[in-house]
């Protein structure tokens, strides 16, 4: 099943043409890795899927993005962002307690019942493999957690609003190898229930977790194929060059 259909997508920020004629499909329950050097438009691409780009005053777009059968322009923005969750590059807990961080989104979507919230928080923290580490200190500030724990808290917070798609924007860029492994484990398990789009600067990470890999360069989608293929027999010379670390 196709989750996202993207047709001839062009994005500008002021005079900067950030994405050029991008067309692709994202399948349900896959992990799609998006790689490319900085300024290649991969984060812009990601932030398009939940319309976070629209916060920028100078943003303009042309083309079509469909979530399942619906043009995302026609979906209520709050509802779209509930369906398409996001985990940011840096662990960004809200200035609240651990419990309230996870409960925040659920509360904002109208749940007030304390029992329901408590259950949801526990479930989400378990799904993000953080429950055992924090279950005795849910009322402490989220900023007291380590970086890796904070990032898993952010994942739990995203899971709590029951999204269909989760966008990861270089989620491990600030983490040590062990925390990275934990986050990656979580992602692979999450794939069973969610569609995952993973933007990463770490080519090896893309190879480890992604089933398909997309390579962006200067705002263009250069190649999109099964990860094995992209890494062993890329069609385009530029993909080959980037993967071998010749530029970028």
């Amino acid at each position: 099943m196709v989750k996202f259909t993207i047709k001839e997508l062009n994005i500008w920020f002021g005079h900067v043409h950030a994405l050029k004629q991008v067309s692709m499909e994202i399948r349900a329950n896959e992990i799609l890795s998006v790689i490319g050097p900085s300024n290649s438009g991969k984060t812009t691409f990601l932030r398009m899927l939940n319309r976070l780009n629209a916060l920028n005053q100078n943003f303009r777009m042309a083309g079509l993005i469909k979530l399942e059968q619906e043009d995302i322009k026609n979906i209520d923005t709050e509802l779209l962002r509930k369906r398409v969750g996001m985990v940011f590059a840096l662990p960004l807990p809200l200035p609240l307690s651990i419990f309230e961080n996870v409960a925040y989104g659920v509360r904002m979507h109208g749940t007030k019942n304390k029992k329901v919230l408590t259950k949801k928080v526990e479930e989400s923290l378990k799904e993000a493999y953080l429950w055992e580490e924090v279950k005795d200190r849910l009322n402490e500030s989220a900023f007291k957690l380590s970086g890796g724990q904070q990032q898993r808290l952010c994942i739990a917070r995203t899971l709590a609003v029951e999204p269909e798609v989760i966008l990861f924007d270089e989620p491990c860029s600030g983490l040590d190898p062990i925390s990275t492994a934990k986050v990656e484990d979580a992602m692979v398990k999450l794939k069973e229930k969610y569609t995952i789009v993973l933007v990463t600067n770490n080519v090896k990470q893309a190879a480890r977790v992604g089933e398909r890999t997309a390579f962006f360069l200067s705002g263009e989608l250069i190649e999109l194929d099964k990860t094995d293929k992209v890494f062993t027999a890329p069609k385009d010379k530029r993909t080959d060059g980037y993967i071998r670390g010749k530029f970028g």
């Binding site: 939940n50 976070l52 916060l55 709050e78 509802l79 779209l80 962002r81 509930k82 969750g85 996001m86 940011f88 840096l90 960004l92 809200l94 200035p95 925040y104 989104g105 904002m108 979507h109 952010c154 917070r157 995203t158 609003v161």
Partner: peptide
């Protein structure tokens, strides 16, 4: 600014973001 982005990305409305964050 990141707090606002996080809150909005969870599907909170702009007013909810202002009010609660």
């Amino acid at each position: 600014y990141s707090f606002r982005e996080v809150s909005l990305s969870l599907g909170a409305s702009k007013w909810q973001t202002i009010r609660h964050i």
